[in-house]
Amino acid sequence: MGLEEKLPNGILLTTVEKLVNWSRKTSMWPATFGLACCAIEMMTTGGSRYDIARFGMERFSATPRQADLMIVAGRVSNKMAPVLRQIYDQMPEPRWVLSMGVCASSGGMFNNYAIVQGVDHVVPVDIYLPGCPPRPEMLLDAILKLHAKVMDEPLGPARAALKAERGERTELIPSSVRYAPRGAGK
């Protein structure tokens, strides 16, 4: 609601920031929005083998008003671009966009008049995920990396300035390394 951004900058704020970010990371509801073959992989990620529900993300919300994350799953045609933008506009802040697959990220193999050459022409993208289409493991990896980014998000402009001054950046460690069983691979 924006209240949290008006808090004074102090000792408490880092804890509040952590709690807020944790809640946003833990319950990041994706918008039901599939465009092409990547959507099949996205649905598989929701299925029982990969189970996106483990991260509290199985509530794909049909209405963008209750969504936090837009997974642009597939190539965006010029006709679809305004629709995509409208859905993005209807989502309440804070919101994130995951560009899934090479077509959404850069147009991919569709270097032609019909396809938007990268969804970042239309909406701001938080994380790009390569692959044609990426496997569910890759999507989960991208989501976990996005979670790591969300955890480091500053709360309000004062914290943002502080973080920029310190030069803090989220280190994007591959999930296979970050969540590897202890002692594995040594």
Partner: peptide, 21 residues
């Protein structure tokens, strides 16, 4: 499938996170 299991023990804090978010 396992269902929510990341937030807190057995994912029990899931609904707290939902409400807070």
């Amino acid at each position: 499938r396992p269902g929510p299991n990341r937030a807190g023990p057995f994912g029990m804090l899931q609904s707290i996170a939902d409400a807070l978010k």
